[in-house]
Every structure is written in C-alpha cells, then in structure tokens.
Amino acid sequence: MHRFANPARFLRLSALLLPWCAGATVILTILGLWFSLFSSPPDYQQGETVRIMYIHVPAAWMSLFVYTNMAIAAACGLVWKHPLADLFAKAAAPIGAGFTFVCLVTGSLWGAPMWGTWWVWDARLTSVLILFFLYLGYMALVNAFDDPQRGTKAGNVLLLVGIVNVPIIKFSVDWWNTLHQPASVVRMGGPSIDPSMLTPLLVMAGAFTAYFLSVVLLRVRTEIAQRKIQTLRLAVAGGPAGDRTGDGAVNGTVTDGMRG
C-alpha cells in the first residue's frame, strides 16, 4: 500500500482513473434515474413514495461507506504516518456529510406521508443524526488548528472513536423498537425486496459510489495542491528555517514526492 503513498504516483493514477469514474457516474445516474422514476412499479402499500427509497437508501449506504473508509484512512494515517491517508479523510468528509444530509432529508420526506411524522427520536434516526454531527465535528476539528498536521491527528482520533456508531446504525433496527423498517437488502438469507425495485436501488448505489470516487479524487488533488502551497509559503516566509519546523518537514516529503 505504501506504493500509493507517493503523491506523484497518486496524481498520475488519479488522472488515469478520473475519466472512468466521471463517465461511470454520468451513465449510472442516467440509468438509475430511468429505473427509479420510469421503469419500476409503485409499491402496493406505499404507492409512488417508494421512489424516494432509490435516493434515501443509497445515500444511507454511502454515509456509512464513506465514514468507514475515512476511519480506515485515519488508522493508516495515525499508524504509518501515511500522508495521503490524512488527505483522503479530509477530502472525503464533506462528501460523506452531504450524503448523510441527503439521507436525513429524504427520510424525513418519506416519513411524513408514510409514518405521519417528519421525525422521531428513535434509535435509527438518532444514530444517523449523530453520524452527521460526527462528520461536521471532524471537519471543524481538522480546520481548528494553525498546524494542519495537528488538526488531522486530532481529527483521525475522532474518526476512530466515532466508528463505534457505524454498527450501531446498522443494527439499530434489530436492537431497538423503531418506526424504521429493518434491513431488506443486506440481511441474512438474501434480499427480501423484489428485483424490479432492487435493480434501481443497486444502480443508484453504483452511481453514488462512482460520484464519490470522482469527487474525492478531485478533492485529494486539491488537498495536495494546498499542502504544496503551504510549504512554499512557509519557505518564502521563513527562508530555510521555515523548513525546519515540525510540519515543514512532513510537508517537505509531500512536495518532494511530487517533484520526483
């Protein structure tokens, strides 16, 4: 994995991957919208509101998927001082927060007509709201330090502590009484959902994943550029002495890798 720690190699690889991810996003989104709005039947109980599911459920999956990936990156960043891992977590956070927000709002819009309420403080809804705040807390914490190295370190610890929330969200519908229905796709004994509804769900999940990959690649590129900017500014401001400060040395490895 350390082969990918080199930012220069990452920039080349991301330039190769980006067109494919972007293309997949466009194609899967068009296909997914076609399946979810036109070629899937209304639910026999919920009528047309079931179409909200094709946004709501993939967004919920993404909110957990992105967070788990950020926590893995945080572990890599803390243990191996992997510079790209820190950048990945930082780059992915706003996207994860966006998906969680979409999940919460669409869930509310689905709950209003079907449950008769926009919101209940039950286990599933509350734990997802906590996930949203974990994302926001991480973003605030990372940017709260003058020294970005200290910020990402504190943020990584928060991400690792917050991972306990992920299984709680997943199993909240089994552990507690809740208005939210239990899992019907990822469950023991296979999906209990009809293929005509499973197809749009999976295609939309694919579209969201491709979207995440495209945007996170762009954001990691931005983070790398920003680290280089910071290193250059430190060097300009302090001369060679600027490079001797703690983060200057770490940033130095990032920029040197890019020139190599």
């Binding site: 209304p42 009528g47 047309e48 179409r51 909200i52 946004i55 819009l109 689905w110």
Partner: peptide
C-alpha cells in the same frame, strides 16, 4: 406521482 409529488420531487 400518485398524489405524493410534494414528497417525491423535493427528495430528488
């Protein structure tokens, strides 16, 4: 949307 336009379209 079967009377649910006010919920489905804002979600999308």
């Amino acid at each position: 949307m079967g009377g649910y336009a006010a919920y489905v379209w804002p979600a999308y």
